[in-house]
């Protein structure tokens, strides 16, 4: 599929499309933890890193098939998501953010000193198995399952926890279980995204998954709209493209990038699609018609 597309699309654009796809998967994972369940996680890059290194080592050292490397990467990340989910039962907001930042830093420093992971030099020569076709397929699957989950009984109870924990408990929601579940699913997708990333880039280093990467992913969720699948996808697309478009302004790139975020938050404090629903749109549209 990629070879076919290459005839029509510049490889540079194809690369951006692949990165958008990977970022959508990563951001949708974080959206479940932070956007839907309301548990502020600032260490999503840590899960990404675990997925990337696990899969890369499996591919390089054990010549594991690509799908097995992806799955193992995601599962290892999910396991750590489960572990990190446990302290969240006692912590909220800022405190939880500190724990997740700390976790991601531990992961980074661990790989910085991890012999099979190539220490600070990182791993190179990872087979480039991630193709546009595979990313597209996985994005569709992830969106589909995500939508199913959020519309289900468990998804509703996740939103309920974000809105009011005490009321959720009074409705019989076991908030302990649901929070850990949200962290585990979020981490699973983080690991999957990381594994795809590693097999696209040939080469990974611990600093690819540093604090700024976590913030970047968090920005996608917040910018798009907490808890909204279309919003998160839009956020991932915009924030992947923005740095590329801003290449025109060269060294002022980061400045414009920051300003863009500030402006969006001023005019859309709930994110681009955070509180937009088809129902409201239809209502507004009908009111307009009556008015005219």
């Amino acid at each position: 599929m990629d070879a076919f597309l290459m005839q029509y699309i510049d490889p540079y654009y194809l690369r951006i499309l692949v990165l958008i796809g990977i970022n959508i998967i990563l951001a949708l994972g974080l959206n479940i933890t932070t956007g839907v369940t309301g548990q502020l996680s600032m260490g999503h890059a840590g899960f990404m890193s675990l997925g990337a290194y696990t899969s890369a080592i499996l591919s390089l050292q054990f010549a594991a098939p690509f799908w097995a490397a992806l799955l193992c990467g995601a599962l290892v990340a999910a396991f750590f998501g489960f572990l990190i989910g446990i302290p969240t039962l006692r912590l909220e907001g800022d405190y939880l953010a500190m724990v997740t930042i700390g976790f991601a830093e531990i992961v980074r420093v661990f790989f910085l000193n991890f012999e099979p992971g190539g220490k600070a030099v990182g791993l190179s020569g990872i087979p480039q198995n991630t193709t546009f076709g595979i990313v597209l397929l996985l994005v569709i699957i992830v969106i589909f399952f995500n939508a199913r989950l959020l519309k289900s009984r468990l998804g509703r109870s996740m939103y309920a926890i974000r809105e009011n924990e005490i009321a959720a408990e009074a409705c019989g929601v076991n908030i302990t279980r649901i929070k850990v579940l949200a962290f585990t699913i979020g981490a699973f997708l983080g690991g999957l995204g990381g594994a795809l990333y590693a097999h696209y880039m040939f080469f990974i280093r611990p600093q690819d998954f540093a604090f700024m990467q976590s913030i970047e992913l968090l920005n996608m969720v917040i910018l798009g709209g907490m808890g909204s699948i279309p919003g998160t996808i839009l956020g991932a697309i915009i924030l992947t493209i923005a740095p590329e478009l801003l290449r025109i302004v060269a060294e002022y790139r980061l400045l414009f990038y920051g300003a863009l975020l500030v402006l969006l938050m001023i005019f859309r404090p709930n994110g681009l699609l955070g509180d937009v629903r088809i129902y409201d749109l239809r209502k507004r549209w009908m009111n307009k018609e009556v008015g005219a």
Binding site: R153, R156, S157, Y159, A160, E163, N164, I166, A167, A168, A170, C171, G172, V173, G227, D275, Y279
Partner: peptide
């Protein structure tokens, strides 16, 4: 203590959890 940003229907649906 309602779930403010959920629809009225979803509030009741969570109740059946």
């Amino acid at each position: 203590r309602l779930f403010a940003k959920l629809s009225v229907l979803d509030n009741v649906r969570v109740g059946s959890h």
